[in-house]
Amino acid sequence: MLIVFAVTIFVVSMIAARLPFLFKKGKKIKLHMLITFSTGIMLGVLFVMLLPEALERAMDNGGSAENAAYMIFAGFLLLFIMDFLVKKYFGKDEYEGCDACEHDITSMSAFIGLSIHSFFDGLALAAAFIAGDDVGLMVLIALCLHKAVVVFSLASTMLMSHHRKKTWTYLTVFSLISPLAAVISYYALDTGGLETAGLALCFSVGIFAFVTMCDMLPEAFHHKEKDLRQMGIFLVGIAVVVIVEIVSASLMGGVEI
Results as ranks from 00 to 15, higher is better:
Ala110Arg: 03
Ser115Pro: 06
Ser248His: 11
Ala128Pro: 05
Val139Glu: 12
Ala131Glu: 09
Ala148Tyr: 14
Leu34Glu: 07
Val4Asp: 04
Phe210Ser: 00
Thr172Glu: 01
Ile9Val: 14
Val149Ser: 09
Glu96Gln: 10
Leu137His: 08
Gly192Met: 06
Val183Ala: 07
Cys202Gly: 02
Arg18Val: 01
Val247Ala: 14
Phe47Tyr: 12
Ala65Gln: 11
Asp60Glu: 13
Gly192Thr: 04
Gly26Trp: 15
Ile233Leu: 15
Ile3Asp: 06
Ser109Ala: 14
Asp83Met: 04
Val240Pro: 11
Leu31Arg: 15
Ala239Gln: 06
Ala209Tyr: 09
Ser161Leu: 11
Tyr170Thr: 00
Ile29Cys: 02
Gly206Gln: 07
Phe76Gln: 04
Met71His: 05
Gly40Met: 12
Ile112Ser: 06
Lys25Cys: 00
Cys101Lys: 15
Thr172Gly: 14
Glu256Leu: 04
Val240Cys: 11
Leu143Met: 05
Ile105Trp: 00
Cys101Thr: 03
Gly132Thr: 03
Lys88Thr: 08
Glu256Gln: 06
Thr8Met: 13
Val205Thr: 09
Cys101Val: 01
Tyr187Ser: 14
Ala155Gln: 11
Leu143Cys: 05
Leu114Cys: 01
Phe73Ser: 04
Tyr187Thr: 10
Leu114Phe: 09
Lys30Asp: 10
Gly132His: 11
Ile207Ala: 04
Cys98Arg: 08
Ile243Arg: 08
His117Val: 02
Arg164Met: 12
Lys224Ala: 14
Thr167Ala: 14
Thr172Met: 13
Asp215Tyr: 04
Val241Ala: 12
Glu102Leu: 12
His103Val: 00
Lys166Thr: 06
Met158Asp: 03
Ile238Leu: 12
Val150Ala: 05
Cys101Tyr: 03
Ser248Thr: 11
Gly63His: 15
Ala68Gly: 12
Leu217Pro: 07
Phe84Met: 13
Ile72Gly: 00
Gly44His: 03
Met42Glu: 11
Leu78Glu: 03
